[in-house]
Design a protein around this nucleic acid. Sequence first.
DNA 1: CAGGATCCAATCGGATACTG
DNA 2: CAGTATCCGATTGGATCCTG
Lengths: 131, 131
Amino acid sequence: MDTVLRAELTARGIAPDCVETIGLVRDVLARVGDKWTVLIVTELASGPMRYTALHEKVSGISQRMLGHTLRALHRDGLVTRTAYPEVPPRVEYELTALGRSLAQAVDHLVLWVRAHQPAIAANREVFDTAG
Amino acid sequence: MDTVLRAELTARGIAPDCVETIGLVRDVLARVGDKWTVLIVTELASGPMRYTALHEKVSGISQRMLGHTLRALHRDGLVTRTAYPEVPPRVEYELTALGRSLAQAVDHLVLWVRAHQPAIAANREVFDTAG
DNA sequence: CAGGATCCAATCGGATACTG
DNA sequence: CAGTATCCGATTGGATCCTG
């Protein structure tokens, strides 16, 4: 998490481990909330997949962002990366147990959104037209 | 949600309402994952609060971002904004039922993070030192 | 095939100044 | 008190090119 926030929270007298948690929560939420993570994890939920397959399935993603996102997921231990020593090279990505458990946690949120999507859409409509 | 993504998903033959959901999920996750939303919602969870109080409690936030975030939350119907016709003016923000239900859904994720924080930290450690 | 490196546009977010 | 407007640096993300 970012140092500035930690300092600010600490200054407010919040317990250190609580500070740590708030920061990491935002961290994880930011990861999950970024442009591609949910789409990638959704694809991987159905099984291991190689780089190019992901690139095709997650339509519209650039190589750069696919690489960045996979690396971040790998760093956090949410996916495994397996490179087979072949020619041409083959690399497979797969959700770890941790990754699947996160996917499940995210599912709650997905369900919430599915359930309340009409309400949010309606609220926005009202807000945008009326104020 | 953004038009480009919608077009891409539609082109992949994904059902329209599914496309809508994926987009909105990312939308909501992005909102929840942004820099300040969780902190603000956490503060509001304990009851209604006025602008300045929030500005003090959510330490480090700029007026700009507090205003922007509150406006976004209000637009989605997650908080109410009540202005009292007094001098000096008084404005109170409060979570709506929808907002509280979202906060609860987010809580699942928060619990997940609390539970798996050590694992993630360890994974990052390994990744950063070893590769 | 897998993906890193570079360059650039768009967006995010902070500091400051100003208004009803 | 409760914001909005402006300016600007920082970050995000896409396009393209290059390599083992």
